[in-house]
């Protein structure tokens, strides 16, 4: 008999409606999703299908119009803005398509950024950032500014920043979308390693079928609904 892995994310009957003037756009409708701890889930679907919206709901960057989003036992949609920000800082690591690094900070300082929200001392922050940069293989570039790094290297810094607080959940929005194949593969190798070796739960939005193949499960989103099969 095998133990069932507990779910980290429970999404129950979630609707998400955007208003554009008087028009209502239903992006997600009655969506249910469970993500077990330690899973590497890929979300695919056509543009505008709601992939990023779903990712934002899981990460507490947005709130559902209806239904509940529970992550690690916390009803994310019911937290105040202030508590939600604090919750994100503690439990979620975000990886963006365009890296979103601070251009005025070195790689090391960029990675330290989320640690400014903790009570860690300066030396402790520095130490943890160094470990994160080591994990992504960029220790030798720690004093470089983003503009002097390649796209792949910038994304590695982005991943180091996402993992530096040791979050339970990594949310990656098209992490290879701006990279060439080789760099993209390196990033995917890294994400896979974080999933397998450090047990990080990863939800990755992607358009790339090769990227999705690295995940342990792939779900397809179309017209606000999830399915296990791609939609033509």
């Amino acid at each position: 008999m095998t133990d069932k892995v507990p779910n980290l994310v429970h999404i129950n009957n979630v609707d998400k409606v955007f208003k554009r003037g008087s028009e209502e756009i239903h992006v997600l409708g009655g969506l249910d999703l469970e993500i077990p701890e330690g899973e590497f889930l890929a979300l695919m679907g056509p543009s505008g299908s709601g992939k990023s919206t779903l990712l934002n709901l899981i990460g507490g960057l947005d709130r559902p119009s209806q239904g509940s989003v529970e992550v690690g036992g916390e009803q994310v949609g019911q937290l105040s803005d202030r508590r939600l920000a604090a919750w994100r800082a503690r439990h979620v690591g975000l990886v963006f398509q365009f890296y979103n690094l601070m251009p005025v900070l070195t790689a090391q300082k960029n990675v330290e950024l989320p640690l400014l929200l903790t009570h860690l001392s300066r030396s402790e922050r520095k130490k943890r950032a160094a470990i994160a940069l080591d994990i992504v293989g960029l220790s030798h570039r720690k004093n470089h500014f983003p503009r002097t790094l390649s796209g792949g290297e910038q994304q590695r810094v982005g991943i180091a920043r996402a993992i530096v607080t040791d979050p339970t959940l990594l949310l990656c929005d098209e992490p290879t979308g701006d990279l060439d194949r080789k760099s993209g593969d390196e990033i995917l190798d890294l994400l896979q390693a974080l999933n397998r070796e450090q047990g990080k739960t990863i939800v990755m939005v992607t358009h790339d079928i090769h990227a999705a193949a690295r995940a342990s499960r792939t779900l397809y989103l179309n017209k606000g609904q999830l399915s296990t099969e791609p939609v033509d």
């Binding site: 803005d81 994100r88 800082a89 975000l94 963006f96 365009f98 979103n100 950024l113």
Partner: peptide, 14 residues
């Protein structure tokens, strides 16, 4: 916008 949105996404307050 990018910088501010990123900081807030990372958990910085408004």
């Amino acid at each position: 916008t990018r910088e501010i949105a990123t900081l807030r996404a990372l958990g910085f307050h408004s």
